[in-house]
Structures are given as structure tokens and as C-alpha cells.
């Protein structure tokens, strides 16, 4: 009887904990998604419905006017292209260089391996602002200031330590036997990397690519400092400068925000599972 009571009370406790868990997750969902939903709603309200005395929760007159206006603004398509180009270049460069380095650390045991790994971990600590100034001077001296290439090279380097750790985790998971088999069949080491290891780790590589892309797409501080003409400004910088210069109406700001996060959300939904796994590996080992 006493045991039965104990079981029942345990069951009740479990139910209570479950209920608390649901409440916490629900509250957090409101906190996380509320601002995004509100921005989306604002972006389809006409300006007169945004600036009102009585708060309007559901858009009474939905409109796409802000999106159209924003898109027709001079320079908006250019900067979208700039961002897309810089992001793509960063992802390609970082994956290429990072794959080589991660593969080397994952597969080979050589002198200085541990030291190099530690080195890649510690460089994450350096303040961005400290590097920003010398980078500005260096890029200016070699003529890459205010260029998308200069920006992409910078992003590549900053994303490298994290992507290297992620990629290493994914490569560690590919059995070495498969490579050995390919080598017996006459594959070179490079061939084995491209034909065996990379295809097997492709979901991990995709997740790493998404992480790099999100970082490059979102980056603001370096882009603000290292570019100064319309031909190389990226999306976050232009958005910020437009708000500052023209006192943009809220509807346009909201529309601009929505446009800039759509690619990220698509990317993210596409690779979130492997992304979470890879980040975990990167952070725990780091």
C-alpha cells in the first residue's frame, strides 16, 4: 500500500514536471518568435496603421508596399548581390581551406598536432576590434580595402576555427577502413579524401557551410569598417546606414529585416539537424 502511494506520488510529480516543462517551452516560444511575428505583421501594415494612437494587432489593410518600395530603392539590389557574393565566396574558401586542415588533424598523427589544435582554439579569444584596425591598414596597403574579396578573406579566417572543429568531428566519424580500401584500389590520399571521405561527411559539410554562410551574411562590424562605397557595402551595413540617414519609416525597416532573414531561415531549416550536432562537437571539444 505504501509502495502504491509512493508510485502514485512519483507519477504525480512526473506529471507536474511535464506540465512545468510545457509551460517553460511555451513561454520561451512566445519570447523567441514574438518579435519575429510582430516584425512580419508590421512589414505588411501601411504606415498609417503603424503610427496610430490605438495599437493595431492584426493588420487591417495588408499591403506589400514596403517590400516594393524597398526593392526599388537604389542600391538595394546591389547590396543584396554584394552580400550574396561575399557569403558564397566565404563559404567556398572556408570549406576548401577548412576541409584540408580538418582532415589533416582528424586523420594524421604528426608532431605539433595538439599544439595546432590548441592554437586554433585560442585565436577565437582575440577581440575583433583589435584586429579591425590593423586589418584596415593592411587591406588598404594591398588595395583590398572596400572590396568584397577583402571582406570574404576576413570572414573566411574568422569562421575557420569553428568550421575546422566541426569538420574534424564529422571526419572523425567516417571510418578509416573505407579510405584504406579505396587506397588499396589505387586511390591517392587526395583521391580518397574527395571520393570517399567528403561524400560520406556531406551532411556535416553542408551544416558547416550553413554556419559559415549565416556568419558571413549577418556580419556587421567588419563590413561597416572595411567597406565605404555602395559597390561593396553588404546588407546589414546598408540597412543600418539607411535607418540612420533617412529616418526610415518603421514599415520599411520591418520589410528590410524580413527580407534579410528569409535566406537565413531557409538555410537554417535545411541543415539544422547536422548543424546542432556539429556545433555541439565544436563547443565541447573547444
Amino acid at each position: 500500500m505504501a509502495f502504491q502511494n509512493f508510485r502514485n506520488s512519483q507519477k504525480a510529480m512526473r506529471r507536474l514536471y511535464d506540465a512545468i516543462a510545457y509551460v517553460i517551452v511555451a513561454c520561451m516560444l512566445v519570447f523567441a518568435l514574438g518579435p519575429l511575428v510582430w516584425t512580419a505583421l508590421t512589414s505588411i501594415k501601411p504606415e498609417s496603421d503603424i503610427v496610430t494612437n490605438e495599437m493595431q494587432y492584426i493588420p487591417a489593410h495588408p499591403t506589400a508596399e514596403h517590400y516594393i518600395k524597398l526593392w526599388n530603392r537604389s542600391g538595394v539590389t546591389t547590396m543584396f548581390r554584394n552580400s550574396a557574393f561575399t557569403t558564397t565566396l566565404t563559404v567556398v574558401l572556408c570549406l576548401l581551406v577548412g576541409t584540408f586542415a580538418a582532415y589533416s588533424i582528424s586523420r594524421y598523427r604528426f608532431r605539433g598536432r595538439g599544439g595546432i589544435l590548441t592554437f586554433y582554439l585560442t585565436i577565437r579569444m582575440f577581440p575583433a576590434v583589435l584586429m579591425l584596425l590593423p586589418l584596415y591598414i593592411m587591406l588598404r596597403n594591398i588595395g583590398l580595402l572596400d572590396s568584397l574579396l577583402g571582406l570574404a578573406l576576413t570572414y573566411t579566417t574568422f569562421s575557420m576555427p569553428v568550421s575546422l572543429l566541426m569538420l574534424k568531428g564529422f571526419f572523425d566519424a567516417v571510418p578509416a577502413d573505407l579510405e584504406d580500401a579505396a587506397r588499396i584500389d589505387g586511390c591517392t590520399r587526395l583521391g580518397a579524401l574527395f571520393r570517399v571521405v567528403m561524400p560520406l561527411a556531406r551532411s556535416g559539410i553542408a551544416a558547416t557551410a550553413v554556419l559559415i554562410a549565416v556568419g558571413a551574411w549577418n556580419e556587421f562590424l567588419f563590413a561597416l569598417m572595411l567597406t565605404n562605397s555602395e559597390s561593396s557595402r553588404t546588407w546589414p551595413v546598408v540597412l543600418q546606414l539607411m535607418v540612420g540617414e533617412f529616418q526610415l519609416p518603421w514599415g520599411l525597416i520591418a520589410a528590410g529585416g524580413m527580407i534579410s532573414i528569409v535566406p537565413i531561415i531557409i538555410f537554417f531549416a535545411f541543415a539544422q539537424k547536422a548543424l546542432v550536432r556539429g556545433l555541439m562537437v565544436g563547443a565541447v571539444k573547444g
Binding site: V25, M28, L29, A32, L33, P35, L36, W38, T39, T42, I50, V51, T52, M55, V214, W217, N218, F220, W235, P236, V237, L239, Q240, V243, W250, I253, A254, G256, G257, S260, I261, I264, I265, F268, A269, Q272, V276
Partner: peptide
């Protein structure tokens, strides 16, 4: 997945979103 979303929003966009949410008039 949904809870992770704010983390991938650009800081500039996040800033403006909250500036609107916490605006003194609107």
C-alpha cells in the same frame, strides 16, 4: 528549431526589431 531562430538573426535586424517593440510611442 524554432527556439534557435533568434540566434541566426543578424544583430542589426534584431536591434531594429526590438527598437520597434520597445518604442516609446508605438
Amino acid at each position: 528549431v524554432l527556439l534557435l531562430l533568434p540566434w541566426v538573426i543578424p544583430s542589426v535586424v534584431a536591434g531594429h526589431m526590438w527598437a520597434l517593440l520597445l518604442d516609446s510611442r508605438l
